[in-house]
Amino acid sequence: MAASTRPLILSILKRGESYGYQIIQDVKQLSGGTLEWSDGMLYPVLHKLQKDGCIESRWVKSEEGRKRKYYSITNIGLQELQTAKDQWSSIHSVLETIWGPAQKWAI
């Protein structure tokens, strides 16, 4: 699993509460369909994040009767995201200097 997954999920959840399937759709949309892992692999990451206290979850029953587990970001999550952002921007600036023009979303 790529190191980018955690900040990716946290960033999506920072925009608001969401559930697994929706998160996957967002990731795909944002990445232009270039991500290499299967849908199912998202869930262990979500659980790990929850275990670390970065996100919270609750079960919600949708209007058509389907149960969905909604995740939302916590303060710890926000902090981790901030740390990650800082790291990424510093790496980003270093690489930019080395490679010239910046490349987005590709480590």
């Binding site: 299967s38 199912g40 262990p44 790990k48």
Partner: peptide, 18 residues
């Protein structure tokens, strides 16, 4: 179901988190 991926591999990941 194929998009979800290999259930065994996912299980192993789950197992690791716990």
């Amino acid at each position: 179901s194929s998009e979800i991926g290999d259930v065994k591999q996912i299980a192993t990941e789950f197992y690791k988190t716990t």
